[in-house]
């Protein structure tokens, strides 16, 4: 009798939990679905009231326009080059710095780490002004290199911090054993530590990629030519136009979100591990 009551009560709880999660799931996923459906509609249909659910006359016109008549191929290439370079450089330099902080009793270590931590807090708008001037004076304004340098400001502090959490988790005895065997420090780093923190490296690279890919502020201020436009800037420019073609804009938004989504789905295990490892260690 008592077990039956508990059983039905737990059934009730489970039912409640599942329905709540369903509502949340709809809240999370519906905007993506709506973006996809709109991008496959003709403009007149997208603006129809009452709205249609599924496209009545599905078309990929919006995508064709994006890739063939507009310059999205170039925007995509720009975003990819810039985000990928930033991700690789910041992960590599971040891993080195993280190793240095994790393994050495450096003079002023607390200050230097405080410095790295503080740099994470500086807002982009504090830096874009001077950046604009500095990059102009060294001829890097409106170049991909300039953008990569700028994105390092966002990604490198985070990469260092994230990877330090991973390296701290690797026993120092491994380093010591290799050093006794005659390995140099850089060899220890490259051949022992880096392979062991591969999940962290993947997570950090992905995270840095997402940060750089998703930026708008720096791209908007540090470039001005059509040749340097990135995907996010292209989308932001389109939405500010006087007449917005929503299917096209949704197609652009979808393409802008897709690389992040695909990379995340492929590497989600490592990303979640990497994001939480630093925060979890007690």
């Amino acid at each position: 009798m008592e077990t039956a009551v508990i059983y039905s009560r737990s059934r009730l709880v489970a039912g409640f939990v599942y329905s709540l999660l369903t509502v949340i799931g709809i809240f999370v996923l519906f905007p993506f679905l709506w973006m996809l459906l709109t991008s496959l509609k003709q403009e007149t249909e997208a603006l129809r009231v009452p709205a249609t659910w599924l496209p009545q006359a599905p078309t990929v016109e919006a995508y064709v326009t994006m890739w063939l008549r507009k310059n999205y191929a170039r925007y995509f290439l720009n975003s990819t080059i810039v985000a990928l370079s930033t991700a690789v450089i910041s992960t590599f330099l971040g891993a080195m710095a993280a190793y240095g902080f994790s393994r050495f009793r450096l003079r002023g270590r607390a200050w230097l780490m405080g410095f790295i931590l503080t740099t994470q807090m500086l807002p982009g708008v504090l830096l874009v002004g001077p950046y604009f001037q500095i990059l102009s004076s060294v001829g890097l304004y409106d170049t991909r290199t300039g953008l990569i340098v700028a994105f390092l400001t966002i990604c490198l502090p985070f990469a260092t911090w994230m990877l330090k959490g991973f390296i701290d988790g690797i026993p120092v005895e491994l380093d010591e054993a290799a050093i006794v065997d005659g390995a140099g420090r850089f060899e220890v780093f490259a051949r022992i530590v880096v392979p062991l923190i591969r999940p962290g490296m993947v997570a950090t690279t992905l995270f840095a990629f997402l940060l750089a890919w998703g930026d708008l502020l720096w791209v908007q201020t540090l470039t001005n030519s059509e040749a340097m436009v990135t995907v996010t800037l292209a989308i932001a420019r389109t939405v500010q136009e006087f007449y917005v073609k929503w299917p096209e804009l949704m197609a652009g938004a979808l393409m802008g979100g897709l690389p992040g989504i695909v990379l995340y789905l492929v590497m989600q295990r490592w990303l979640v591990q990497g994001l939480t490892a630093g925060a979890i260690k007690q």
């Binding site: 905007p31 009231v49 997402l210």
Partner: peptide
């Protein structure tokens, strides 16, 4: 799946919602 909104650029998130919140359509 729940992490998907977080991996797209915030510009993209803004645009999707601008469309959902459009007063007429």
């Amino acid at each position: 799946l729940a992490l998907l909104p977080w991996v797209v650029p915030d510009v993209v998130a803004g645009i999707i919602w601008k469309w959902i919140l459009n007063p007429l359509y």
